[in-house]
Nucleic acid binder design. Structure first.
Lengths: 183, 183
DNA sequence: TATTGTTATACTCTATAACTATA
DNA sequence: TATAGTTATAGAGTATAACAATA
């Protein structure tokens, strides 16, 4: 069952063709030549938190892509692998809730990971609707390799921040994204 | 010229149908009922900067969408309007470079803004390849209204941070996303 | 030759409605 | 009735190659 998702197959196929287009150039070049051609004014845009956060996230996203090149990981599949590794047997719905991924979007994601042989879906004997998720040995290997590469890249990216600054930054980001449970 | 981009037309049409689905619920609920069903372990994922940044950006993105509902703004079109407002006559390529938007992706973006009557494209008499961008009065009005709403939402979102913390946060984000000009 | 804007195209991520099989 | 997973679909953002007009 479950029609072969061509997108996943295509991704798997495409991967073989990737060589080394860009190594690690996450720069945002504003220069047009040797000189900055015109000065650009940002105005109040620069003072919006959303704008700064988007810019920073863009840098991190590109850096992530460069760091895991060739592994077949995207940031969503990577975070999902990591979550399954730390919570063997977790089901799709719960994993999606925790990572803020909609239920329908989990399907293709998990399918891709099982197609790659990194994750197993097993019927939960206690609730025959649910599917329990487990990492394979290959999945664990990819995850470990991914973590190593990403941590190395991140440490370079954050080299300009002190340990204390990093701690403050993490704390603030968590406070912003922490689930606001109300009623 | 320029075939009518159906996506833009669809968006404009769709807009009229939007009423009030969600008012401002940018919460990430982890709860399934009254009790947290199972405890989930995040492991080293929580210590990755990229992960935390993605989570925070997701919160901001949803909050942005809620705050400008009904105005027809997305975060890209909003930042573009703002840039044009502060740099009248800037051309597409330069605006795209500054905002880190690929050249081809600028086309539909600008087309949408001109279709809405918020931006004018004028041939640059000094370089007949280039198009200079200007805001219309309507564009300026929408931008002003957008800023007012977004700033209000952001102040609520960042209410848990002190002014000093916000300053530090902005400084760090800027240091991370600052263009790294090398050679 | 190089650059501006453009078209075509593809991939990733996000989001909603509706279905199925179980509970 | 409600929930877990699924299908279909659409919108939004990002990315590359190739072209015409102009520099």
């Amino acid at each position: 069952m479950a029609k072969p998702p061509s997108k996943v197959r295509n991704r798997l196929r495409r991967e073989r063709a990737i060589s080394e287009q860009h190594t690690s150039k996450a720069q945002v070049s504003i220069r047009d030549g040797l000189q900055t051609k015109e000065t650009v004014s940002f105005g109040p845009l620069e003072d919006l938190f959303g704008y700064q956060l988007r810019r920073a996230w863009t840098v991190l996203r590109k850096d992530f892509t460069a760091s895991v090149e060739g592994l077949g990981l995207r940031h969503l599949s990577f975070s999902l692998l990591s979550l399954i590794s730390d919570n063997p047997g977790i089901n799709q719905g719960r994993a999606g809730k925790v990572l803020d991924i909609q239920r329908p979007n989990m399907v293709a994601l998990i399918t891709e990971l099982t197609d790659r042989g990194w994750v197993e879906r097993r019927k939960d004997p206690e609730d025959r609707r649910a599917l329990a998720l487990f990492l394979t040995d290959d999945g664990q290997r990819i995850l470990t390799e991914g973590f190593a590469r990403i941590e190395q890249h991140e440490s370079l990216l954050l080299a300009s921040l002190s340990e204390a600054e990093k701690a403050v930054l993490f704390d603030m980001l968590k406070r912003i994204s922490a689930p606001r449970i109300e009623s």
